[in-house]
Write a protein that binds this DNA or RNA. Structure first.
Lengths: 213, 213
DNA sequence: GACAATATTTCAGTGGTGATGAATAAAGCC
DNA sequence: GGCTTTATTCATCACCACTGAAATATTGTC
């Protein structure tokens, strides 16, 4: 005669929160933010729609919780910076490629950045992190004249790699091996770390070029 | 006793289509795709909501029509390619900066790219254009070994410039002058056009390095 | 100028969305 | 066993993009 409980807390201790999180994470990763509806997540997790609001406040909240960053960019930058300065560009490329090609962290980064472009609050956040945690710290490690701008040129190239290989998946960048990318982008990356001085933006008839490496 | 016409075609020849287009364009440019509602556009243009569907089919259709591209990337690439090969990187930078800093075309490009990331159909389109109209044509103009991959490395750096300066607005890239950007990114850009050969991806003790510039 | 064809406009929906608030029940605590 | 906290359900809100039918103006044809 036990009629199904129509309301109130379910018996037992079902971990509803992580059930929602699991479903949400999977769906956000392969459908993107806007394509996922809270209703579909609720349905798949076998949970009432309102529970999502209850646990995570809003769709954005759920997105943030589901894709909570496993890699801390600050740590990676620190590690890359403390090695031999001579091979810094190669190491940087290596770490970037490793993080984005990794089947664990890669899709998360992809989903985060895809969305970042659209939503202003996300975009501002990424900008902050890039400026403070990456450009500034690379600049501090570089030292010398115009360190911040040289670091910026460096980071800009890394951004280009990410944009073409992972966000747009442009060929042949998308299918090149990690080794080839390091080999091909390494030299230009190193070049961007040096200061062009006050030469004309034209060709290379610099009278006082004291750059040897 | 002329009661206001309650239905049917309005007398005269009001250009409703372009009225909608004007409002839509302005709003898409400074609010982004998702933040703009068809209802708000209809209201501001003093037009019934259903007219938007009638003229443009869908919100995407309206977006496409409102931001119809004024700059044809193929033309720009052609122009840049037909100059002196020695100053090709500088010219490319110049044209990219000109297009994106231009108060006319810049915001349109920005709006287009912001959305591109989110929507897969847009992303695929941009990828196609970049591959066919840019990478392939630069490669054809370059010639030599691994032309396509060298062109790709080049384009990747341009993409980095766009991503950091215009999409994310990272400092100091966002506020650098065009001249300084050309001066700072030019050398690395030129470097990326050359083939690194078969040297180890590590440092520089290449036994058969025949790279002098 | 009659009249049919076509283009434009309005209205009244449809089914979807994220979010909220009140009612209810279980669990944890004393 | 009472009491508070936590979890769950339901009903509903306001908004969204989009649609179909009806109404009216314009345009073309003879």
């Amino acid at each position: 005669m036990n009629k199904a409980p129509r309301r109130g807390r379910r018996p037992g201790s079902p971990d509803t929160r992580t059930a929602i999180l699991d479903v949400a994470r999977r769906r956000f990763l392969d459908q993107g933010y806007h394509a996922v509806t809270l209703r579909s997540v609720a349905a798949e997790a076998d949970v009432d729609l309102a529970l999502i609001s209850y646990f995570f406040g809003s769709k954005k909240g759920l997105f943030g919780a589901a894709l909570a960053l496993s890699v801390n960019p600050a740590d990676v930058v620190t590690q890359v910076l403390e090695g031999d300065p001579a091979t810094f560009p190669q190491r940087a490329l290596q770490r970037v490629l490793a993080a984005w090609d990794d089947p664990e962290s890669g899709p998360t980064l992809l989903a985060l950045f895809r969305n970042t472009m659209q939503d202003d609050t996300f975009a501002a956040l990424v900008k902050e992190v890039v400026e403070r945690e990456i450009v500034d710290r690379v600049a501090a490690s570089l030292g010398g004249t115009a360190a911040r701008r040289r670091a910026m040129a460096f980071c800009s190239q890394i951004a280009g790699l990410i944009a073409t290989r992972y966000l747009l998946r442009v060929e042949p960048m998308a299918s090149m091996s990690q080794e080839e990318i390091i080999r091909r982008l390494g030299p230009a990356l190193r070049q961007s770390l040096s200061d062009p001085g006050r030469t004309s933006p034209q060709s290379r008839p610099a009278p006082l070029s004291r750059r040897q490496r």
